[in-house]
Nucleic acid binder design. Sequence first.
DNA 1: CCGCGCGATGTTTACGTAAACATCTCCTCG
DNA 2: CGAGGAGATGTTTACGTAAACATCGCGCGG
Lengths: 365, 365
Amino acid sequence: MDTADRTPTGVPGSGRRRSRAGIRSQTASMADVARLAGVSSQTVSRVSNGYAGVTEETRQQVLAAMKELGYRPNSAARALKRGEFRTIGVITFSLSTTGNVRTLEAIANSAAHEGYAVTLLPVAVPTQDEVRGAFSRLEELAVDAVIVIMEVHLLDAATIALPPHVQVVVVDSDAGDRYTVVDTDQAGGSHAAVRHLLDLGHATVWHLGGPDGSFAAQRRADAWHAALIEADRTPPPLVRGDWSAESGYRAGLVLADHEDCTAVFAANDQMALGLLRALHERGRRVPEDVSVIGFDDIPEAGSFLPPLTTLHQDFAEVGRLCVENVLRKMRHEGAERGTTLVPTRLVVRESTAPPPSLAQGLCRK
Amino acid sequence: MDTADRTPTGVPGSGRRRSRAGIRSQTASMADVARLAGVSSQTVSRVSNGYAGVTEETRQQVLAAMKELGYRPNSAARALKRGEFRTIGVITFSLSTTGNVRTLEAIANSAAHEGYAVTLLPVAVPTQDEVRGAFSRLEELAVDAVIVIMEVHLLDAATIALPPHVQVVVVDSDAGDRYTVVDTDQAGGSHAAVRHLLDLGHATVWHLGGPDGSFAAQRRADAWHAALIEADRTPPPLVRGDWSAESGYRAGLVLADHEDCTAVFAANDQMALGLLRALHERGRRVPEDVSVIGFDDIPEAGSFLPPLTTLHQDFAEVGRLCVENVLRKMRHEGAERGTTLVPTRLVVRESTAPPPSLAQGLCRK
DNA sequence: CCGCGCGATGTTTACGTAAACATCTCCTCG
DNA sequence: CGAGGAGATGTTTACGTAAACATCGCGCGG
């Protein structure tokens, strides 16, 4: 009623809008569309949201007006009115590890499928302070829920800063009692890796583990150890890397000097790659002299020298479950507190074989 | 004035808020804080935004009230009022290629540094329809600007659907005249790769190119060709892969049979990896018999067998420039239409050497 | 033939914030 | 000692949308 006399012709976005502070300008609002279509803005809203109770004829008129003005619903106003943003925040360290990236991708796809967008919150340095900082930024971010790809021990200090209404799902962590956790079945996969090598006839299995402080690394190492104990084997000393191929190479130089080392379970494929190079340089053939198994099944694993036997992680499923769980929690449909595990799959390629002793035995027959 | 008699005690979020439709509930608003602190909501706003003109004493009272109520500014309302979301949208195909991921990461970091969040919009299948779909979703998304990591020819059909006020910056494309483009200097890098091999004494250089339809692949192939012509060499036929290590392997099996092939420039490191495996299988030593150079310098490149000579891409810089450009366009500070190129850097490792003929010559001396 | 009811549409209001403007209180200076 | 002004704070309003409520007109049954 007040705009009518100011802009009698109904030209949208004229005058007052131009002087606005914001960066977005000249956007047609519902009122503009309504004026052009000769209906009320509420009717425009109904059309925009696909509600029933609008004549087909009116609907077409409104749609035409929308098109002419290039109308786009203002999501800020929508979010304000509806009280939700239809956006999920994802907090992660760098995207330098395969697992994080693949999980993120799966989350984004699942979220898109549910009509949710994904907002990325990178944390440069994985210290508690940094994480807390990320969370406090997230607090005033347009986000309905949060998925954290992170160790829980880093998360703990940060969650206190989280507004209570924001639901959280965590990947790559324990603490299933306090949070809803989705993760790859690290233990099951590691157990399968060790079993595979033992079944080939190896006396024991060495482990090239991930960095101290990584939950995934810890679980894989623990399960490796347990599987050996279970099979009455003596666990060799644990060798640690930092997930990188370079660290795998360095560890490999050490392992290559152990004559009795015939089988190595690397905690990820990148380290296995470096390991392969070190063994090659030291003249130890894979798999004839040493068997190597990885974890992750990165796309390149099949092209290593030799093609790497490894444990395939179903990141797509992990991502899907994250989104499913977090949305369910948001909707208060049975918040699944606890850990959901996604199984791994053993992919046998050419980097594993029976140990030299057995192979020789076979040859002599 | 109307809420005062309804909730005389000033308990925040009581009654009316609970019945709201949205999922977020029980959040304290400025009015709640204002009531508790005994000031006006405008003063709360001033404190919240760090404006001057508030007594230190008042400020502390307000901060205390905020803390007590767990007040978090409502970003939807903020965005509505301010007309901006402080969010940048990123559209990309899958996150399966190194380049896209690293660029995304750099964008996220740069954006965070500027106080912007990044919203991810994955496009499952890179068809024009899919892209258009992603854009139309993006339109009603809370986004001030868009960075597209995509071929322009896929983008073209989609941009028509973009609201005119949303600025776009493109990576991995030509068409610098129509869009603001930031990209790695594909041509310069490829030229350097070819020159490196020619300088080592190779008669010519084969090229294992990326898939048809990829702009980056096209530019690298073109520059490879041009560099050979420039040096008066005969370009061998182009061999194509699809960026994957597996395709590099298949191509490598073919190349291994060409006796005269002593130097290969692979359009990315993954294909180089597969290529290395194929050459190894066929008994052609790298670099003694065949030199291989890659492109990207993925973290694992130094751990290949042998460590891969490659062209390092500065993704961090690409991401930074994307954010810088898109923000500058948003603020109408000289929209740099045109292409900004980020130089590559040759990283010489162990996969390149003089050709067998020369090496023999050296030995005989 | 009249009123009831239902479907289509219009009007009012509130979401939470922040700009613009209004007011109020001191303190300074002539 | 009073006018002027600067700084602190309060009040009004609008951002664009959508729920809730109001109204209007038309068809159908009593």
